[in-house]
Design a binder for these strands. Structure first.
Lengths: 193, 193
DNA sequence: TAGATTGTTAATCGATTAACAATC
DNA sequence: TAGATTGTTAATCGATTAACAATC
């Protein structure tokens, strides 16, 4: 491990709390990336993993809804890795068109389809009220988007072929609450984690 | 299934796409909730599951940071189930103190500890810039909070006994992008999902 | 060459499913 | 009683880990 050019499955297992055999098996599933007796070349492995995870290309993202959450996400843009870029923002309110949020000029909805195509946008983020979310999803789908990240508290219907993830704060809080209670019980019973 | 008073593991398995034996085993782990030859009493089962998931009590939540994201979450409050309630909001900017967001009056940070105790708050939400997040977490911990939901793009250090979840938009988008690509490949290869 | 470490096969472990006695 | 369905034990399946030949 003093040689930073190379890393062994043992090293990786230690760091990731995983069995070295697991590491080797998982990597071997995608190809032969290592050298027997030597280990894995770090930069080569990173490049391979980027390929496996499809992180070797930039993905362009559009945002609909420039309320508090939409603006928060647009500002978050700065933190997104270079392979994810929010490049367009839309709002149904015509009065919002032309306003600027963190370098993005808000566009009216009727420009959505053309912009998605022109800028090669493949993911749409929905931060509109629940009542409007489905309509926006339909417009994204019609524009040819491949994935939707929905922040509206409603379940969207999207056709097969369009991946839809739901960012659910409530679920996040409930999950946290559940594990908190588990912790408390574990303490009470003198168990360790 | 025509009798809505009662439900069988078969019924539940059909609905949840799970093996009936799995359903029975999982439920049996927590106790004997069913009646042989009859099934599970629906309302009794719901109550038991609520108990198991610790959903039978109200959890009080505080929010620090009333920027775009904080305000968005405060408004989201309306959608939270009755067992999760954001009951306090704080901001480091003294000028913000006293402003009202969706029924919540923003308080100055020096009131945090007292409010957490007085209102029996067990979860803290952090929506401040990354640079301030750790400081806020420390204050939450000192106030005796049991769980933290962190929206700042930074990893927090919290002591053993304080559950910390990180709501990571980037991870959400990356995961979506990954599955999108998988879908595309599956199509290309004529595989079905 | 001797030591190290991969990729992979064999052994183990755990989780899922099937089967069934108990019983409503 | 006959039919249905649980709770649980036994069988199966898959995933994790150990072991090791290949080889750098």
């Amino acid at each position: 491990m003093s040689d930073v050019q190379t890393v062994s499955s043992q090293d990786l297992g230690d760091k990731l709390d995983l069995n070295p055999a697991q590491i080797r098996k998982d990597l071997a599933y995608f190809g032969e990336f290592g050298r027997k007796g030597v280990g894995y070349n770090v930069s080569y492995l990173i490049e391979k993993i980027r390929q496996i995870l499809k992180l070797d290309r930039t993905i362009y993202v559009a945002l609909v809804g420039t309320g508090n959450l939409g603006r928060a996400l647009a500002n978050y843009n700065t933190y997104l890795k270079e392979n994810l870029k929010i490049v367009a923002a839309f709002d149904a309110d015509p009065a919002k068109a032309g306003t600027v949020i963190n370098n993005l000029t808000v566009q009216p909805m009727n420009e959505l389809a053309a912009t998605v195509k022109a800028r090669n946008i493949s993911i749409g983020i929905i931060t509109v009220p629940a009542a409007e979310a489905q309509k926006v999803a339909d417009q994204f789908v019609a524009a040819g988007i491949r994935g939707i990240l929905n922040f509206a508290p409603t379940v969207l219907k999207t056709p097969h072929g369009v991946r839809t993830h739901h960012a659910d704060f409530t679920a996040e809080l409930l999950s946290l609450a559940y594990y908190m209670e588990q912790d408390i019980e574990a303490e009470g019973s003198g168990m360790n984690r």
